Amino acid sequence: MVEDTLQRFFLEIAYDGTAYHGWQVQDNALSVQQKLNEALHKILRCAIETIGAGRTDTGVHAKQLFVHLDAPTDRIPHESRFLHSLNALLPHDIAVYRILPVDQDAHARFDATERAYEYHVHFRKNPFLLNKSWQLRDAPDVALMNEAAQFLIGTQDFGCFSKSHTQVYTNLCSVTRAYWQETDEGLVFHISANRFLRNMVRAIVGTLLDIGLKTKAPESILDIIDSKDRAMAGTSVPAHGLYLTKVVYPYIDTTF
């Protein structure tokens, strides 16, 4: 096969992360990327390398994640048939919604301009929310948490919310949206930024819940951010309440 027969594609996927040790392929652990690569290999009958918009940790879910790959165009003659075949090979907890031809230099990770997450909590025992939302015993003060969440907006060093010993070039992130919303079952925290550090959303949620339960004042989040010290922030909340919900690119419609 010669190189000029390859076309770069984006796949839009979604998954329930309960059964997986995150998105990224790893030794001796089942991942979403592994199952996707295996299914693509069977259909395309060649070695396939996928690159995702980011990594999700064990138990975290994705309502929208984009992946890029290079594949021979003659093996994807009909997009709808390809999607049907790929979904038939994937387990029930992983779905592919779209395949999009893109420029050869398009990159699912580096070209993303915004990512959005949700964190779900509920208060009443509900078997249908098992591994999908975190059950809290006490209801926090939503107004206090939303007051504190506004201090997250802007470009700041969020090292205090990052998992220790991660290899990143900077801890600066630009947060554009952060707020709590009341639902019939409980609460959902929404946050959007150009990038996120490892464990950042779960640490932010834990910190805001401390404020909502009145163990800290809303403005204390400013001192926590200034400290750049993970020990100053709250405990990371469980992974199963976290969802990657949106990834934005300048050249594709991600609201489909």
Rank of each mutant, 00 (worst) to 15 (best):
H68F: 07
H84N: 12
L129P: 00
E219I: 14
I252F: 03
A149K: 01
G234M: 05
D141Q: 11
V248S: 13
L36C: 14
S174G: 07
L136C: 09
G154A: 10
L36P: 07
V142Y: 05
Y119E: 03
S164K: 14
L213A: 14
D226I: 03
K228C: 06
L36T: 04
D253C: 04
L144F: 08
R8T: 08
L65T: 09
H120N: 05
L152K: 03
N131P: 00
F256G: 07
R230E: 06
G52H: 11
N87G: 11
I99D: 04
M145D: 08
E49P: 01
L11V: 02
P91Q: 03
G212C: 10
A239C: 08
A203S: 14
T58I: 11
H61T: 07
Y249E: 05
V205E: 12
I224R: 02
P238T: 12
G154N: 02
R45H: 10
F161E: 00
Y249A: 10
P250S: 03
T245S: 12
I252P: 02
I204D: 02
D4N: 07
M145K: 01
S133Q: 06
V205R: 00
Q104I: 10
L172G: 02
L144R: 13
S80C: 05
T56N: 08
P101I: 11
Y119P: 00
C160L: 04
E12Q: 13
T215H: 09
F158P: 06
D223L: 13
N37Y: 00
S85L: 10
I252G: 02
Y179Q: 14
P218L: 10
H68N: 13
Q135R: 15
H78C: 15
L213E: 04
I94C: 07
R8Y: 00
S164R: 14
G22S: 10
G154D: 02
Y15W: 03
A231Y: 03
D57N: 11
Y169H: 12
V168E: 08
S162Q: 12
L86V: 01
V247T: 09
I43K: 13
E185W: 03
N28T: 09
L187K: 01
K216L: 14
L90C: 07
A143D: 14
Q167M: 09
F123A: 04
Y117H: 06
